[in-house]
Design a protein around this nucleic acid. Structure first.
Lengths: 202, 202
DNA sequence: GTACGATATGGAGGGCCACCCCGTTTTCGC
DNA sequence: GCGAAAACGGGGTGGCCCTCCATATCGTAC
């Protein structure tokens, strides 16, 4: 969330020092999360950023908000990819390509899967532009097209699919060959146990 | 791990007080984990058991060991189920039935999925009878039969399948309708996105 | 350029936790 | 019973998350 120009309310722009600290914290958080995952110590992030822990908590009242901010641009990129793929003549292929892209991002950015998973079901109902909701609506479109083309069974929801992708990503996040494993598991999940060797995705 | 009669080494039997405390801790842990999941506070477990926290740490040097002990019997039950199903005339059906059973247990016993996931890849290489290895070898047999009957693609491993099941279970563990969701997601994963409505599992 | 109100800061402290040290208590073989 | 060996647990250390509030900094109006 770009700290100035908030949703609708005409908040006055941030003071220069606040802005500076905000950015420093974000950078430090990105580093720390890359190293230690979504559970990285908030105190250490504050330490790295050279600010007091209170400052961190003022800018990001919950770990969730921090994750959201850290991964906002990655999520936007994924949404853009979805928009591109929406024009693909093979909607089934587009959908599975996109899900694969989500998985790839999630395993190479520790913490992303966690950020994508966290719906707004826990307090704090004032979140409209969460990673979760952004990615969900981006994917809903692709699924919609796939369904029309009979490339996805009608009872499956985008929430199901993303839950699957994120669950897989989380599970392999700390394995050394995470990317490979995620890809193989996702393939498995998309095409089923039985099909022999066919790339059934297209 | 039944605290006396350890693997091969002729450890002398536990002292009565140690045994008593061991059992109390196990009972308290089962309660606490059921309430708060795999991350339940060890101090609170000790408190509930009426022992000092040092005693807990002496009996269970890591959270992992505690989880293993708490869920040992559930895991054994799942292994027994696998053994029964190995005789099923339809090995593909047997495999998917078993995986479903694993998922069902995992969602109704908070923390089980976590216990099943933890391989021995983190230090402590002295673990032969972990939940992870027990369940893996139980499932390997089922998968083997399924493969021979051409009911599973040859490139999928039991590790893949269990990772999938546990990832799903973990992901839905805190949702209110976890059992339903796990089942729907597992079905999805086993049969693939595309198949229309057929119960492709058999 | 200065003064002043609004805004932002961070050190200190509280509550919780995992884990360990070591003096004390309990058990068990004799 | 007795004494050595085994087990115990209070309390300490250090980490974590989060909040309070006295202080420092910023932006602006003059």
């Amino acid at each position: 969330m770009p700290p100035d120009s908030r949703t609708a309310s005409p908040t006055r722009p941030m003071r220069a020092d606040a802005r500076r600290n905000y950015d420093r914290i974000l950078a430090a958080a990105a580093e720390a999360i890359a190293e230690h995952g979504a559970e990285a110590s908030l105190e250490e992030i504050a330490r790295r950023a050279g600010v007091g822990s209170a400052t961190l908590h003022r800018h990001f009242p919950s770990r969730r908000r921090l994750l959201e901010a850290v991964f906002r641009d990655k999520v936007e990129a994924l949404c853009a990819t979805a928009a591109d793929l929406a024009a693909d003549p093979d909607p089934g292929h587009a959908l599975s390509t996109w899900l694969r892209a989500v998985a790839r991002h999630a395993v190479s950015n520790r913490g992303l899967a966690t950020a994508l998973m966290q719906g707004s079901h826990d307090g704090d109902p004032t979140l409209g532009g969460t990673c979760h909701s952004m990615i969900t609506s981006a994917g809903a479109d692709l699924l919609h097209h796939a369904r029309e083309a009979n490339a996805a069974r009608p009872d499956v929801t985008i929430t199901d699919l993303l839950k699957l992708v994120n669950a897989i990503s989380l599970a392999v996040e700390q394995e050394p060959d995470g990317a490979d494993q995620a890809d193989r598991l996702l393939t498995l999940a998309l095409t089923g146990i039985h099909s022999a060797a066919e790339p059934a995705g297209r």
